[in-house]
């Protein structure tokens, strides 16, 4: 039994780390910003924590905190120009930002170790810390969904014109969502740096971006369970069957196509809707009408 647990601790750690990144992606999409910048914020957080501890010898909590601050700051800075753009343009701008961070991490060799990467980061973060961080962020997301803030995000995402006509200061809310996304990604970037000893610039590139996006798309974009389910499934799949691990990229690709075509709201959100529908149907009030109301 202890063997079993011991074997799966690395997988569980990976799950917790990626869950954090998935929440960062989730809160951005939730507030109606089509951002793919989580990879960039994660890179900023990770390199900040790594550099502060390797080059300056600061204790790891300081480095991680600095990562959070810088991640949030980068998001705030980025949100100014981003609020002028919509949809596809936001996606392209944030992809450009990810590329800028990656290429700067390669170029600034003296600071980041360049293409060779940054090595010798003290290993100070274990499973308990990761668990607390992931649980904390999950609780924050849940709390947001329970309050007025969550409902405001819903309105903005469903229809910007309606949101504005209801007197919602849209730019302010989107900035808030985006800053949260940056802070969370910065936090988990810092945790990853202190969890894995070494950083490599391309680690936070296009591949990372796609993986994180897949978690949220697969799981669902509106309930808190979405990112959890998506990350769990995609992290666990390669562990369950060896052939799936060898074809990891192929599986990701096929899942993305299938899910967005046939289950566009993701596993968790679809399941939650089904359950709600069934409950409504059982209680006897006109099921068809109620179904419509739940869907919107």
């Amino acid at each position: 039994m202890s063997d079993f647990i011991f074997n799966y601790i690395p997988v569980f750690d990976l799950f917790l780390l990626h869950l954090g990144f998935a929440f960062s992606q989730y809160i951005a999409l939730r507030s109606g910003v089509f951002s793919l910048a989580t990879a960039a914020f994660a890179g900023i957080g990770a390199y900040t924590a790594g550099i502060l501890s390797v080059k300056l010898g600061l204790p790891s909590p300081v480095g991680i905190a600095a990562g959070v601050v810088l991640g949030t700051a980068a998001a705030l800075f980025l949100s100014l120009p981003l609020s002028k753009l919509r949809g596809v343009y936001q996606a392209i701008a944030t992809v450009a930002f990810v590329q800028i961070v990656v290429s700067l991490n390669i170029y600034l060799e003296g600071l980041t170790g360049g293409a060779m990467g940054l090595n010798g980061i003290p290993h100070t973060v274990g499973t308990p810390v990761l668990f607390v961080a992931a649980a904390g962020v999950a609780y924050m997301m849940w709390a947001i969904n329970r309050t007025r803030l969550g409902r405001t995000f819903d309105v903005i995402r469903e229809d910007e014109a309606v949101a504005v006509s209801l007197g919602v200061p849209m730019a302010r809310y989107q900035t808030l969502g985006f800053a949260l996304s940056g802070g969370i990604a910065g936090l988990f970037g810092g945790l990853e740096a202190h969890h894995t000893y070494a950083l490599e610039p391309n680690q936070f590139g296009f591949t990372f971006l796609i993986a994180i996006l897949s978690y949220v798309v697969l799981g669902g974009r509106s309930s808190v369970l979405g990112p959890i389910v998506g990350t769990a499934v995609l992290i666990a799949l390669p562990e369950i069957a060896r052939p799936l691990d060898e074809n990891r990229v192929l599986v990701y690709g096929l899942l993305l196509i299938l899910v967005i075509n046939f289950l566009p709201r993701g596993i968790a959100d679809t399941a939650i809707d089904r359950l709600r529908l069934r409950r409504v149907a059982r209680s006897g009030s006109a099921p068809a009408k109620a179904g419509k109301a739940v869907e919107t």
Partner: peptide, 29 residues
Amino acid sequence: VCFSRLRKTGDEEFGAIISSIGAGLVIMT
């Protein structure tokens, strides 16, 4: 495979990006 179904749902802006990323990954592999 990727777009014809999505266009009918009207959510092709977000969906098409995801779906075509998937197609790209499959072809590349």
